[in-house]
């Protein structure tokens, strides 16, 4: 009986640990051909999104209200943002404002 309880307890702890680890994922958005690929991405609270610039000219990844900004990314450079709060984060490239993207952050 004690062994069974211990087994159930360990399984519960493991599943909780695994669930929290799975939520903190790393996503990649490629900046290519003057587009964010994918342009729309859904992530969970605590996830990181990394943008990598594959274009030959520099870009930025900047939230529309300027709350966050990767700064200038030259070709090959990347930057990541951790999304801690649920909501929709619309962003653009400051240098090329027709380049738009969106991150939907779901609650854990």
């Amino acid at each position: 009986m004690a062994a069974l309880s211990a087994t159930i307890l360990i399984a519960l702890v493991l599943s909780t640990f695994t669930a929290s680890q799975a939520a903190q994922r790393h996503h990649v958005v490629e900046i290519q051909g003057f587009k964010f690929v994918p342009a729309k991405l859904t992530v969970r609270q605590g996830d990181t999104v990394e943008w990598i610039n594959r274009d030959i000219v520099p870009h930025t990844v900047t939230k529309k209200d300027k709350a966050w900004d990767t700064g200038k990314l030259k070709k090959g450079q990347s930057a990541g943002i951790v999304f801690s709060s649920p909501g929709i984060e619309s962003y653009l490239c400051l240098y090329h404002p027709k380049m738009r993207g969106e991150i939907t952050v779901l609650a854990k």
Binding site: G33, F34, D55, I56, V57, H96, K98
Partner: peptide, 16 residues
């Protein structure tokens, strides 16, 4: 070809 993609983005930006 890469440059053309850049300049097409410039054209669209200028038009707006």
């Amino acid at each position: 070809q890469q440059a053309l993609a850049i300049f097409e983005a410039h054209e669209a930006h200028a038009e707006t």
